[in-house]
Design a protein around this nucleic acid. Structure first.
Lengths: 339, 339
DNA sequence: TTGAAAGCGGTACCAA
DNA sequence: TTGGTACCGCTTTCAA
């Protein structure tokens, strides 16, 4: 690998001048610039990220914390992030926290040491320590949350899609289809984003003249290690369908849970949507793969990733007066699991 | 952030001594070491990766090139890699090449510039330029291929699982189940690993006294941009089932293609496995989610990732006399799509 | 518009 | 067993 000195020699200038043209700071006569550009070309030179970083403090590296690699929701988000990152000379590291708050912290520490320029924080569950930690971190470096923090005292950047209205709409739709006993499978209310979806479901029932029935809500037990949303969906459906008065429709917090529910229902011989309708949330690719295809609420997931990345990059570049709390409105999509 | 100098001052020693304890090179009296360790603790000091890297040339960073983020096969492999990496103070960057040879090159260039310590190379298709490029690269830095290179003149490290025997076994199994017209859906023979699977399928038929019939083989057209294995599987099944003499079983190069085929077959009203059996390859999580669950050939995917990472780390640490061409034998797993 | 030179935060050689 | 010091490759004043 050639160094800046090699380039300088070949171009017959000093290191400083070469540095000016690669960093884009300062003025260089265009002839000189051309000479240097040629030298760079000839030597196939590229500046060392180490040496650059040691002065600028920039790694040109973003990190994305995700709780579960196997949920392709994050994969879709990643594509949006990756695209924006690449366009701007950044790379992004995926950090799989495996739904563990501890691993979130461990990764965050490691990322701090590695001085990544920004962090995209997807969490699975909230504990107060981690909220505090990442909130504090967000004051020191660019961090963007992909979830609400309900605490009004905490002000952090975020990008997410709202779930209340769309879930309400879905619930009302099920009622319009003649369903009356509409169940819900959910994770514990750690995650605000997901909590809003649940509230929308309840409100939809109320507005349709149906009293929400706690009996029809399955909330997965706390702290089940190694359990995926898929498992939760399966178990939730199992639990609800074996009640004395089972539901005739099931809504879920996420698509992957809905897929788990469908898996159970198919296996147990229920007709979907005849016996039971199913509605998910997210619109991951899997939604059109399962049989029947899944009615769901579609998030602009890729777009969410793009926007998050742009906000992060803006902050990294010192633009602090940008809009950094963005909420998307998702879209209700009807497929075979309800029609 | 405190620097090595702060630590040195607080501990009352020189930078050199501090450096010795953090890098682990050289001998330090244990009292001195303790003093330094305390100082490090107190200052919450961690060495700058930049400054370390500039001297050592090590980024403590691995990269994993994958052709398709949405294929969870790579997700599973990643988990194995991540685990080994983390244990050794490394982080791994996922680079999604989107099945594009050009993007493979672009990423490789970028990784070279960023001086990652090692590369795990998963490709989708082979073009000679890229084989040459990565082969050459593997002489300059640790690179591990997750695929065969059939060219005997090319000697590179690899980890993979062999597909010949297991595919043969699967074909024979289908015959034992009374199937006679066994089709195959495959990608073009770019990828040697996948080619071996196909050869095994043919050999299995031959050994069962059935003449392989080209008519029953669907090979996805070259260079279909934006098409996933899922699409290929769907189209392959569509193509094969609409022949005058359709198959009564279908084998595929990958699970995700098999899932696409199942999607088509379900939609078109075929009974699986009654009308058509389906066999995949990989054993990704999706295999047990689809209806019916997928008979497949199970790779020790996570293990493959672990082994690849270990080889890479060994090479990074200068151990060049290690076994670096590893082949796993996968396992045939019978599920609902054949029984 | 350009060059000289002082760092940035480490590592590693050499001498003590 | 330790300290002094010359780098590593680049950025960034400051002067010319």
């Amino acid at each position: 690998m050639s160094t800046i000195l090699d380039v300088a020699k070949l171009a017959g200038v000093s290191r400083s001048t070469v540095s000016r043209v690669i960093s884009g700071n300062g003025v260089v006569k265009s002839e000189t610039r051309d000479k240097i550009l040629h030298a760079i070309e000839n030597l196939n030179y590229s500046p060392s990220y180490f040496a650059q970083g040691i002065k600028t403090g920039k790694t040109k590296m973003l990190a994305m914390l995700i709780p579960d690699y196997s949920n392709l929701y994050y994969g879709e988000m990643y594509r949006g992030i990756e695209q924006v990152a690449l366009e701007n000379g950044y790379m992004v590291m995926i950090c799989n926290t495996d739904k563990s708050s501890t691993r979130e912290r461990i990764y965050a520490e490691e990322l701090r040491k590695r001085e990544v320029d920004g962090i995209i924080y997807n969490t699975y569950k909230r504990n107060k320590d981690n909220i505090d930690y990442f909130t504090k971190l967000s004051k020191q470096m660019p961090v963007i949350f992909m979830d609400y923090i309900d605490d009004k005292d905490i002000d952090v950047p975020y990008v997410l899609s709202e779930g209340f209205e769309s879930s309400k709409k879905a619930a009302r739709y099920l009622v319009s289809k003649g369903k009356r006993r509409i169940g819900y499978i959910r994770v514990p209310p750690y995650i605000s984003v997901v909590q809003h979806r649940y509230e929308g479901y309840k409100q939809g029932l109320i507005e349709s003249g149906i009293e929400p029935d706690e009996e029809l809500v399955y909330q997965c037990p706390d702290n089940e290690v190694g359990k995926t949303h898929l498992d939760v969906g399966f178990e939730g459906a199992l639990f609800l369908m074996n009640k004395p008065n089972p539901p005739d429709a099931i809504m879920t917090s996420t698509d992957i849970m809905a897929v788990g529910a469908i898996k159970y229902l198919n296996g147990a011989g229920y007709k979907i949507p005849g016996d039971v309708s199913v509605v998910g949330f997210d619109d991951i690719a899997l939604a059109t793969i399962v049989e029947p295809s899944l009615t769901t609420i579609s998030q602009p997931t890729r777009k969410i990733g793009e926007v998050a990345a742009r906000i992060l990059l803006a902050k990294i570049n010192g633009e602090n007066d940008i809009e950094d709390q963005i909420i998307f409105e998702p879209e209700f999509i009807v497929r075979g699991s309800t029609d």
